[in-house]
């Protein structure tokens, strides 16, 4: 049975699309047939993060309207065998995502043998974001250690607990927190909320902590999800998060300041 995972946050710019790209690539690299859907109708961006922007012919909305089949719209990832991308459309009409339409696409994907369906939510709490989370079995709430992001994450958790299909059926969406842009140096100086603080405020299980890293921008520049950068801490932290998603017990890394030796100071990579 397919597991539907929404990557959501409320606030924009915290790393939802970066996370969707990294997590879906990671699951596929681990051998699971995975599809990642861009729910940001009108502002499609997952395609450019995953380097398939020039291969988009049909999109999510075309499939919902019956103008294309799923098979025609799905883009096979060039790096990982088991990964497919369903891009968002560029139409300005955001209400084209109907509940029945989205449900049918998700059911068809599950029937096609996909094990994981990753829904990359748009920012905000409007229709697109609601549709992305409505059918979810699990939610990855992406947050930065910063007041507006944490507050918005709490709102999204509230919506998951009251407005999702699972909530309507009296069940619970499995929620977990992914803290991104974490800077242990600033946390040590008391300038940034620590991971314990955010966990305590949101009372949500921690899936991972992605350190702030130059490699994230380098990855998006090239359209290679950061999880492929094995030297970067961000890439490794995403890999750990994927392992935890698959039920493995992996200790959290990169939470405290590392003291560099002289050699590393002279020759080491900063990230």
């Amino acid at each position: 049975m397919a597991k539907i995972i929404v990557v959501t946050s409320g606030k924009g710019g915290v790393g939802k699309t970066t996370t969707s790209a990294a997590i879906s690539s990671g699951l596929a690299l681990r051998g699971h047939k995975t599809v990642v859907i861009d729910f940001d109708i009108g502002l499609r961006n997952l395609d450019i993060i995953m380097n398939c922007e020039r291969r988009v012919v049909y999109d999510f909305v075309n499939v919902i309207h019956g103008e294309a089949t799923l098979r025609q719209a799905l883009i096979r990832d060039k790096r990982t065998e088991n990964l497919f991308i369903l891009p968002a459309s560029q139409t300005r009409d955001k209400d084209v995502l109907t509940e029945e339409g989205v449900e049918k696409v998700l059911n068809d994907l599950a029937a096609d043998g996909f094990e994981y369906i990753i829904c990359d939510s748009p920012a905000g709490i409007e229709h697109g974001a609601f549709m992305a989370l409505y059918f979810a079995d699990m939610a990855i709430v992406v947050a930065n250690p910063e007041v507006s992001s944490v507050r918005d994450s709490d709102r999204i958790l509230g919506i998951l607990q009251s407005k999702s299909r699972r909530a309507e059926r009296g069940e619970r969406v499995e929620e977990c927190l992914l803290l991104t842009r974490y800077n242990p140096e600033r946390v040590a100086r008391g300038e940034m909320l620590g991971v314990d603080d955010v966990e305590e405020i949101l009372a949500t299980k921690l899936l991972g902590v992605i350190p702030e890293s130059e490699s994230v921008l380098k990855a998006s520049n090239q359209g290679i999800p950061v999880i492929y950068d094995e030297e970067s801490k961000a890439g490794q932290a995403y890999k750990d998060a994927v392992a935890r998603l698959l039920g493995e017990e992996v200790e959290h890394r990169f939470l405290v300041v590392e003291h560099k030796g002289l050699f590393q100071r002279l020759f080491g990579r900063g990230v």
Binding site: E146, V147, V150, R151, D154, R155, G158, S162, V187, R189, G190, E191, M192, L193, G194, D197, I201, L202
Partner: peptide, 21 residues
């Protein structure tokens, strides 16, 4: 430190918003 101020402010507003949710 500013992180403690942030935590305190968040705890108050989050509790308030949860009670209305």
């Amino acid at each position: 430190d500013t992180a403690s101020i942030a935590k305190e402010r968040l705890q108050i507003i989050v509790a308030h918003e949860r009670s209305r949710r």
